[in-house]
Simulated scan of single mutants.
Amino acid sequence: MIEALNKKGYNAFAISIPSFNELLNVLAIADSFLLSPLIYFATSMGTHVVAAHQIMLQICGMCTVWGEPLSQTSQSFMPELIYGVNRYLPKARMLLESLVTIGATLGLVLGIIGTAVPCLFPNIFTHDIKVIQEVCSCFSPTFPFPPLHLLLQ
């Protein structure tokens, strides 16, 4: 890989220390840091809340992995189009527009599915009425998560 990067005009051995702003950007998209306190508080609120939280967490996990191909595509092609030897900014802009359009559409669809399925078909996950009520109470705060996650990729 190092040889391939060097042939394309990159310095594969270049190491740089991230700036404070770059570290803030990484922390802004680090989902796991945001979920840890949420899990702690959910587990302290009772059995039904924990069960509902687990259902919603699994649905969230299933919805967010759909954005990974977009992330891989941007990480694979964008650096070469922007900084590589064969730099071509119009093609980079076209790729960016395509990825944002696909990501926003996919995020909207997954947001709808991820919030509608637990409320419309709650018996898929559990038959306990109290857990179903807890899951349905999460309807509106859950909707924006998949679209935002995909746009931050």
Rank of each mutant, 00 (worst) to 15 (best):
E80P: 04
L5V: 04
S19D: 11
Q58M: 04
P118L: 04
Q75W: 08
A12N: 06
I132D: 02
N86Q: 13
Q153D: 10
H127T: 15
I124N: 07
P118Q: 02
L81T: 01
A104R: 07
E97M: 13
V135L: 04
A116F: 06
S16Q: 14
M94Y: 11
M78V: 06
A28T: 09
D31E: 14
I113R: 03
G84Y: 05
T73Y: 12
L120H: 00
P18C: 06
V135K: 01
I102V: 08
H149F: 15
P147N: 01
I29Q: 07
A30M: 09
E80Q: 09
L151F: 10
C63E: 06
M56G: 12
D128T: 10
Y40Q: 09
G67N: 01
T64V: 15
L150Y: 12
L108F: 13
P90R: 03
E3T: 10
P122G: 00
Q133L: 12
M78W: 05
G107M: 12
F33I: 13
C119H: 05
L81R: 02
S19I: 12
E68C: 14
P122V: 03
L95W: 11
C119V: 13
C63L: 08
L5H: 07
L96P: 01
M94L: 12
I55D: 02
T64H: 06
T73H: 10
L106T: 09
V85Q: 15
F13D: 15
P147W: 09
E22C: 11
G46Y: 00
L148S: 07
T47Q: 13
S16N: 14
L96N: 13
I59L: 08
R87P: 00
L57V: 13
F125A: 06
S74W: 09
I55K: 02
G61L: 08
M78Y: 05
H53R: 05
E68L: 15
L35P: 01
I113K: 03
A116K: 00
F125R: 07
F20I: 15
T126F: 02
G61A: 10
T43E: 03
T101D: 02
Y88K: 06
T105I: 15
Q54C: 06
M56F: 10
N25T: 11
I2L: 12
I132F: 01
F121K: 07
G61W: 10
I124M: 06
N11M: 04
P147V: 07
A30L: 06
Y83E: 12
A52L: 09
G111P: 03
V50A: 08
N86R: 13
K130N: 11
L95A: 09
F125W: 14
T47E: 11
I17K: 10
T115M: 11
